[in-house]
């Protein structure tokens, strides 16, 4: 109900108060990241650290830039003409936007799962094998495919017919196939862009369990418009909001349990309690 603009707020708490940096080692360190689509600025001055082997959720209303931020993390935004990024996105101390960095090398380590399940129109086996193959994997492909499918909790459902088209699977299975496809490259991080928005509640919960399982091995960053989902699966949550002229900003960031039981910023509280706008 109260959606006060930043400028109207008389006493803005200091930034550091709203950003609780996660403890332990981090996989990403963002420093003053701003991002433009052509002339339109989409992200403004975002700095945050993303912890290793944890689930970090990005939440916020539509148009707050959470997906844009996610796609900055593996240079997926490069594909869009006319984009520009300022600041640095450090991945294990390397700025992935430095001149000598190859985006293909970046994406090999930082996989991605998309909003709508997008398996290739090929067999289940080929779907999973593709990533390993293009990255020059020379070992036992069957073994790699099986391992990835098992990791994605899909093996038991598809093992007897790996030749079946990936498109013949149900929505939830397709999304897990996409996760298996990302895993086959053995990435360090998986970025998930609203991975359950096209799925029914049961399939959604399955993916969430899978996320909790995967995070023992790798780092996951998930964008979700479903706050409950962020609450359920993530260890850290970042709340974003489009500020003046629609520039996405990081409002509050900290351990999920704190953000959902005791948010420090009124706007965060309004959003997670459904009183926003």
């Amino acid at each position: 109900m109260t959606n006060t603009l930043a400028s109207e707020r008389a006493e803005q708490p200091p930034r550091s108060h709203l950003i609780i940096e996660p403890e332990g080692p981090s996989v990403f360190g963002l420093e003053n990241v701003s991002f433009w689509y052509g002339r339109k600025q989409a992200l403004g001055d975002i700095s945050m650290k993303i912890p290793v082997k944890r689930v970090t959720a990005l939440i916020g209303p539509s148009g707050c830039g959470k997906t844009t931020l996610l796609r900055c993390l593996n240079r997926m935004n490069d594909l869009i003409p006319g984009v520009r990024l300022e600041g640095s996105v450090n991945y294990h101390e390397h700025n992935i936007y430095a001149k000598d960095i190859d985006p293909v090398e970046v994406r090999r380590r930082i996989g991605m799962v998309f909003q709508k399940p997008n398996p290739f129109p090929k067999s289940i086996f080929e779907n999973v094998a593709f990533g390993a193959r293009v990255n020059g994997y020379k070992g036992d492909m069957r073994e790699r495919v099986e391992k990835s499918l098992r990791q994605a909790a899909l093996w038991d459902e598809v093992s007897d017919d790996l030749k079946k088209s990936g498109l013949a699977l149900s929505g939830g299975q397709q999304q897990r196939l996409c996760i298996a496809r990302a895993l086959a490259v053995q990435p360090d991080v998986i970025l998930m862009d609203e991975p359950c928005s096209a799925l029914d509640p049961i399939a959604t919960l399955k993916i969430e369990d899978l996320i909790r399982d995967l995070v023992k091995e790798l780092t996951i960053v998930i964008v979700t418009h479903n706050m409950q989902q962020a609450a359920r699966v993530s260890d850290y949550t970042a709340f974003m909001l489009a500020g003046v002229q629609g520039v996405g900003q990081l409002i509050e960031y900290g351990p999920t349990r704190e953000l959902f039981t005791n948010p420090r910023d009124q706007r965060t509280e309004d959003y997670i309690t459904g009183r926003f706008g």
Binding site: Q228, A231, R232, T256, R257, F260, T261
Partner: peptide
């Protein structure tokens, strides 16, 4: 308890 209520609905 509160944490579970807040995060797990």
């Amino acid at each position: 308890c509160l944490e579970i209520m807040a995060t797990q609905q």
